[in-house]
C-alpha cells in the first residue's frame, strides 16, 4: 500500500464499517462507488487524495448520512438493537463454549497416568497462547478500528455487530437489508460445528472416565494376585499343620475371620481336609486413592475344599488398603476380612 493510497484505504475501511448496516452487498457497492469518485477527483486534481477525501467529510458522518437517507436510523425500517434475551443467549453460548474448552483442557491435564507436571505445564502454555492470541486480536481490532469478528453465540442467534454511523450496535441479521432473507446454511453449519464440538468434548470426557475405569480394573487385578497368594498361603499352612493363628493386628487374618480359620485347622486335624483349589477370582470393586479416603480393593476368591470327594465352596474377601503415601508406589496392606461358606 503506497503512502498515497493509505489515507484512501483507511477512509474506505471506515466507510465500509459505518455502512455495514446496509449489508455486505450494498455496503461494498457504496465503497466501490466512493472509491471511484475519489480516484477520479484525485486524478483531475493532480493526485491529491486528501483534497478529494476532504470534500466528503468524515467517513462516519458520510456513513450516517447514507443510513439516515436509507431510513435505517429513524422511521419504520430503522435498525434497533437486538432483544436483550438474544444478546444474553449469545453471551451464554459463548461463555459455555469457553468453559467447555477450559474443562476439556483440564480433563486432559488431569487424566490418570498423565505426567501431572508436564500436563499442567501444557495447560498453562496453551492458556497463555490463547490469551496472547486474544489480546492480539483485541489490539488489532482497536488499531485497525475494526470490530472483532463474530462469535459462535452471535452466529447461532443470528446477530451482527454493525455501526449505525459511529454508534456500535448489536442487531438481528434479519434486520439488515441484504440479509432480510438470511440463508440457513451458515447458522446450520455453525450449529453442526457446535454439535460436533460438544460431542467430541463429551466423547473425550467419556474416554477419560473409561481410562480411569480401565486403570482401576487393572489395579484391582494386580492386587487380586496378592489376595490369591494370601488365601493360598493360608491353606498351605493349614494343610501343612503349621498355621499359627494371629495374635496382633498386623496379620492378614482379621479377628472376625479367626474362628473360621480355627475351624479349618480342626477339620484338617480330624483328617477331613486334604486339598484345595482356587476356583474363581472376581473383582467386585475398587476405589483409587485420588477418589477419596476409602481406598480399598475388594477381591472375592472362591475356594473349594475337597472333603473326601465332596467340594465345599468358600468365598474369601480380601481388602487392600494403601499406606500413607499417595502416589502409585504406596505400600499396600492386605487382610482377609470375611469368609463365607456355601
Amino acid at each position: 500500500m503506497s503512502s498515497q493510497s493509505q489515507p484512501l484505504e483507511r477512509y474506505l475501511e471506515d466507510l465500509a464499517e459505518g455502512v455495514g448496516a446496509l449489508g455486505p452487498l450494498e455496503s461494498a457497492e457504496v465503497v466501490r462507488e466512493i472509491r471511484g469518485h475519489i480516484e477520479e477527483a484525485a486524478a483531475e486534481k493532480g493526485g491529491a487524495v486528501e483534497d478529494a477525501l476532504g470534500s466528503f467529510g468524515p467517513a462516519s458522518a458520510l456513513a450516517a448520512r447514507i443510513l439516515e437517507e436509507r431510513g435505517l436510523l429513524a422511521g419504520p425500517d430503522a435498525l434497533s438493537a437486538a432483544p436483550a434475551w438474544m444478546r444474553a443467549a449469545a453471551l451464554l453460548v459463548d461463555a459455555t463454549v469457553s468453559a467447555f474448552v477450559l474443562l476439556l483442557l483440564m480433563a486432559v491435564a488431569t487424566r490418570p497416568g498423565a505426567d501431572r507436571a508436564a500436563a499442567w505445564a501444557t495447560l498453562v502454555v496453551w492458556t497463555a497462547i490463547a490469551a496472547t492470541l486474544g489480546l492480539l486480536a483485541w489490539w488489532w481490532a482497536v488499531y485497525r478500528r475494526r470490530p472483532l469478528v463474530g462469535t459462535t453465540g452471535l452466529d447461532l442467534l443470528g446477530l451482527r455487530r454493525v455501526r449505525a454511523g459511529s454508534t456500535p450496535m448489536l442487531v438481528r441479521a434479519a434486520d439488515i437489508p441484504d440479509l432480510r432473507r438470511p440463508g440457513r446454511v451458515r447458522p446450520a453449519i455453525g450449529l453442526l460445528v457446535a454439535v460436533l464440538f460438544v460431542s467430541a468434548g463429551v466423547a473425550s470426557l467419556q474416554d477419560v472416565a473409561h481410562e480411569r475405569a480401565v486403570l482401576a480394573v487393572e489395579s484391582a487385578t494386580d492386587h487380586s494376585s496378592v489376595a490369591v497368594f494370601l488365601v493360598s498361603d493360608l491353606y498351605s499352612q493349614v494343610l501343612n499343620g503349621d498355621l499359627v493363628l494371629p495374635t496382633d493386628d498386623d496379620s492378614f487374618i482379621t479377628s472376625e475371620v479367626t474362628p473360621y480359620v480355627t475351624h479349618l485347622v480342626a477339620e484338617h486335624a480330624a483328617g477331613r481336609l486334604i486339598a484345595y483349589t482356587i476356583g474363581d477370582v472376581r473383582i467386585t470393586g475398587y476405589a483409587g486413592a485420588e477418589d477419596g479416603p476409602v481406598d480399598v480393593m475388594v477381591g472375592v476368591l472362591e475356594l473349594r475344599d475337597r472333603d473326601r470327594g465332596k467340594s465345599v465352596g468358600v468365598t474369601y474377601t480380601v481388602r487392600g488398603t494403601p499406606g500413607a503415601a499417595s502416589d502409585d508406589s504406596r505400600p499396600m496392606t492386605y487382610q482377609i476380612v470375611r469368609v463365607e461358606q456355601d
Binding site: I34, H37, S55, F56, G57, L62, R65, I66, E69, R70
Partner: peptide
C-alpha cells in the same frame, strides 16, 4: 450540493 449530500440521496433514490 457536495459529495456528502449527493451520494446519500442517490442511495435513497435508488432504494
Amino acid at each position: 450540493a457536495g459529495e456528502s449530500t449527493v451520494y446519500p440521496v442517490l442511495k435513497r433514490l435508488e432504494a
